[in-house]
Design a binder for these strands. Structure first.
Lengths: 179, 179
DNA sequence: GCCGAATAGTCAAGCCTTCAACTACGCTAG
DNA sequence: CTAGCGTAGTTGAAGGCTTGACTATTCGGC
C-alpha cells in the first residue's frame, strides 16, 4: 500500500542502477506495513481512550506532563514545543486552549522580553493526576502486556536507532528524562 | 512525558495492589518514549517530504495505492476505509477532494444499490506513479538504511505482535498483500 | 548608542478530522 | 406487501493543524 505501484519491478535487479527507485522486496514490504499499521492503530487507540475517559487528548497530555516535570512547573514556549515535537504555532494554539480551561497560564519571561512562559496551574496539575492512571493503563494493556522482555528491549533499540537518525538532539533528552 | 506524574511512585512495590496504577519503571519509560518519538518523527518526516515533493499527503497516497492494487482499480468505500485505517466519514471527504483533482471518481455499485465504488482514474494512476519513487526513497533513507537485517526482523515481529492485539483482521491482509 | 539581522511568539486563512445527524437502500418477519 | 431494523454512505458544523505573514524584542557589529 505504501511503497509500491502494482506494475513495478517484478524482476528487479538486486542493486538497481543509480537513479532507479530502490523498491522494497516482499519481506521489507511486510515489515514496513506491520510497523506502519501497528504504530497508527496504537496511537489512535491510546488517544481515543484517553480522550474519551478524561477529556484530555494525548497532545494536551504531553504538554501537561512536560510542564509538570520542570522546576516551578513552567517552561519557555519554544522549549515546550520542542519537547512535545510540536510546531511553535501549534503549541501556541494548544496553550491558548489550555488557558481557557484554566490549566495553564502565560507569563512574560523576565530574562527575555520576547519570551513567554507557560505555567501549569494547580487545576492543570490536578487534571494531569487524574488522567495519568488512565494513560498508563492504556500503555500497559495495549503495549507492554503484549510484549516479551526481549521485544521490549528490541523496541527500545529500534526507537533509539531511528531517533539518532531523525533527531539526534531528542535522544539526549530521553536519557536524562526524570521519568 | 507520557505515563508519569513527577510525584508518583518513587518506591512503588513490584506488583502494585489491584486498582493501583501499574506505573512504568525507568526502563519501560525509556522504551516507550523511544518508540513514541521515533514513530511520530518518522511519520511526520515521510508525510512532509512526500507532500512537499509531490503534493500528495501520505493519507491520499494510501488511498491511491489501495485502489491501484485491486482488480479494475476500484473498491467499495467501506472496504477502502478499512484498508486505509480511516473512518467512513474521513474517507468520504478525502474521496471528494480526490475527485476534485480528477484522480478518483465515484460510481454506484451494481450489486448493492446502497454502495458506492471509488474508481482510480488514469490521471490518478499517473499521479501515483510519479509519487511512488519519492515515497519509497523516503522509506529507504529514513528507515531501512538505518537498520540492520536483525532490526528489520525485530520491527516486523513487533509490529505483527501488536497488530494481533489491536486488530486481528488487519494482519491477515498483510500476509496476502500483493506488494 | 544605533542599525540591521535574528529570534520569540501570535494570528488569520484554508485544509483536514470528528461527531452527530440524516438519506437511501436491503433484508426479514408477519 | 409493508413495517421495522440494520447497513452504506454523505453531509455540515465545530474544532484542530499548517503555512506564511506579522509584531515585538534582542543581539552583534560599528
Amino acid at each position: 500500500m505504501t511503497a509500491y505501484v502494482s506494475s513495478a519491478s517484478p524482476g528487479a535487479p538486486e542493486t538497481p542502477p543509480p537513479g532507479e527507485p530502490r523498491w522494497l522486496d516482499a519481506h521489507e514490504q511486510r515489515a514496513w506495513r506491520a510497523w506502519l499499521y501497528s504504530a497508527q492503530l496504537l496511537q489512535d487507540r491510546l488517544d481515543r481512550e484517553l480522550t474519551h475517559e478524561t477529556g484530555i487528548s494525548h497532545a494536551y497530555y504531553e504538554i501537561l506532563v512536560a510542564l509538570s516535570e520542570t522546576e516551578g512547573r513552567m517552561m519557555r514556549m519554544s522549549e515546550l514545543a520542542d519537547k512535545c515535537l510540536s510546531s511553535r504555532s501549534r503549541l501556541s494554539h494548544a496553550v491558548s486552549r489550555l488557558e481557557e480551561r484554566g490549566w495553564v497560564r502565560r507569563q512574560v519571561c523576565a530574562e527575555d522580553g520576547r519570551g513567554q512562559l507557560a505555567v501549569l496551574t494547580d487545576e492543570g496539575f490536578a487534571a494531569l493526576e487524574a488522567a495519568a492512571p488512565v494513560h498508563v493503563e492504556g500503555v500497559r494493556t495495549h503495549l507492554f502486556d503484549q510484549l516479551t522482555p526481549e521485544q521490549v528491549e528490541n523496541m527500545r533499540d529500534l526507537g533509539e536507532t531511528l531517533l539518532r537518525h531523525l533527531d539526534p538532539t531528542t535522544i539526549k533528552a530521553l536519557h536524562q528524562a526524570p521519568s
